[in-house]
Design a protein around this nucleic acid. Structure first.
Lengths: 343, 343
DNA sequence: TTGTAAGCGTTATCAG
DNA sequence: CTGATAACGCTTACAA
């Protein structure tokens, strides 16, 4: 009564396992009658091929591995959500691994994924990862790989990211147009590609509007807790002090908001806020902050599409490129007051 | 140069595969010298046993399946985080499946998990699931199952949940002690066990303080979007109107907050808010709401511990019980004003 | 059109 | 102590 195997069907129908196998996958010419019989019986017994045996056999496992720094993070959980939706539609399963921002665990996870015979890998690099030879080797061995969000220019692979440059540019420009001129930027570790892109967008907006770039206004956080307060204090102690903060993550946004409120800084009269955040979090931060919403789910969609195309060799010429998904700017009145400060 | 198998080692060392196998797992008596040789060579070639072959063989896959309604939800993503931490420490991998609140997908996912030979299953039921015979059958076939958060009394399995009764009781009592008497309860679908437990806690607190239960004050949401506004409107139209809202989820909390702010209701002067939320979200909701924080990660920890114990038959007498993890009440001044309304 | 047999990587059983 | 051999569920030459 347990799991039905091809053998059970063969025995019951007095056929050989190979015939049953063929009937099931409709392959080689086979007697329609036999086929019907097999199909019917299989249906009745609710036969399901054992994916483990299939993978051992060397054929596709129809599973893709997702490697992310952590799941408990809106961006990644939504991205995974997007990935899963596409994967499910295209008949793939998803096995998730977390690196916890550790290079060693990333390597281990990748080994695990490989030995579990995933058909392809969707990776968002750990913040510790700067060297990607482990990925290059894998790729050389023919493993389809797509990078998303935390990508690396060192790897010749399709990369799917938010349009961080434009998002940062828009956010900064919005603050400038609201009359702000001393715009602080609280961001994540400098060696991440997304950090650099955002910084570039920030600088470009400043430049466009003739505002000099002041590196004192830029602070890099880690992913640790309770680090935002001190950064905010330092920034507020500058002369002249900032009149706006542009933050680069949910955590920084929330920390910044809390720190400012605790210090009784008037928002937005003293400090206007805008930040990169994820959907839902953007909603929760409702009143005080404008946000640049990261298209997490879409990134997942696109990354998954690309990977599965790669796996299935849909396109002969595999397009190795970087896809940039637009961010969405959500403006809230709190960025003002425009009138009083406008030039 | 690709994956190293036991065969490669055997060939290189002029041994049989069985000897290598034995050497590797240090089993049966084996020549220490041979063993050393094999171990060394395996180490040098970075040999890793193929988990797929192992699972096919019928032995443990050292993978556990997690079945949740959805990942893109702080509660579940944190619970998964907790599960993963324990699983990793105990040498297990984690394969995640989402039901998207669909019974059919739940059944499918479970089949998939089984055919992927997971050693055990950690399940949070979809909201559509009322019948659990699919789980009973699985259990009867010997699959270790632990339920968490969305549980069912119909299944004789270990269940790990937040202490929803006490959490709701504490929240309600807190509002009462702050002088509130017309406390509305916005909650999730009524057929979920957690909903019932929370409702019971809410009623118990009212009763303890001699406040009559008014079912007009209780509204059940679905998991859909944009449904909170109308519910808030209806509640605010009651006479006498509520003076506090107690919400049962992140989504409801955020929706409620937004609806009230949009309608210019003074918080907390007109309406005090308290809600069940998850860590991080609790932080983001900082100023206006007090929260009952769900111990998502701990639930994950405990559930994973229990499941793995079950898998490894640590305890002869498998304790089938319900574990209730305490919630944490975070009070913010916004629940007041105590003075003006206190009796 | 169907059956036989080998093989995927590993372990368990049974002989040497 | 070590080596064959079968088996896990399935596919696929190769025969028939």
């Amino acid at each position: 009564m347990d799991t039905v195997t091809i053998k059970d069907i063969a025995r019951a129908l007095n056929l050989s396992t190979s015939t049953v196998s063929r009937a099931l996958r409709g392959s080689y010419e086979i007697n329609p009658e036999t086929k019907r019989l097999v199909m019917e019986y299989a249906e009745r017994l609710n036969y399901r091929p054992n994916p483990i045996a299939l993978s051992l056999k060397g054929s596709a496992s129809r599973a893709i591995g997702i490697i992310v720094p952590q799941i408990a993070n809106y961006f990644f959980s939504q991205a995974i959500n997007g990935i899963e939706a596409i994967a499910y539609n295209r008949g793939y399963h998803v096995i998730i691994f977390q690196t916890h921002e550790s290079y060693d665990r990333e390597v281990l996870n990748i080994q695990q994924a490989v030995s579990r015979r995933v058909d392809g890998l969707l990776i968002s690099l750990s913040s510790e990862t700067s060297d990607v030879t482990h990925l290059k080797e894998l790729q050389a061995q023919g493993m389809p790989i797509v990078l998303f969000d935390r990508v690396s220019a060192d790897l010749e692979a399709t990369q799917v990211v938010a349009d961080n440059f434009k998002g940062a540019f828009d956010a900064t420009e919005h603050l400038i147009q609201a009359g702000r001129r001393r715009i602080a930027h609280l961001t994540i570790p400098p060696w991440l590609s997304i950090t650099q892109e955002r910084l570039a967008g920030y600088r470009a907006a400043l430049e466009k509007h003739g505002i000099p770039y002041d590196e004192n206004l830029v602070r890099y956080g880690t992913f640790g807790p309770d680090e935002v307060g001190p950064m905010v204090d330092e920034l507020m102690a500058l002369t002249p002090r900032p009149d706006a903060f542009f933050t680069a993550s949910d955590r920084l946004a929330a920390g910044c908001l809390a720190a400012l409120q605790q210090r009784k800084v008037a928002i937005p009269d003293d400090i206007a806020l805008i930040g990169f955040t994820n959907m839902n979090v953007a909603e929760l931060l409702s009143p005080p902050m404008s946000t640049v919403v990261q298209p997490a789910q879409q990134i997942g969609h696109v990354a998954a599409e690309r990977l599965i195309d790669l796996i299935e060799r849909k396109h002969r010429a595999l397009p190795i490129d970087t896809v940039r998904i637009p961010t969405e700017l959500i403006i809230r009145e709190s960025t003002g007051p425009v009138a009083s400060k406008a030039e």
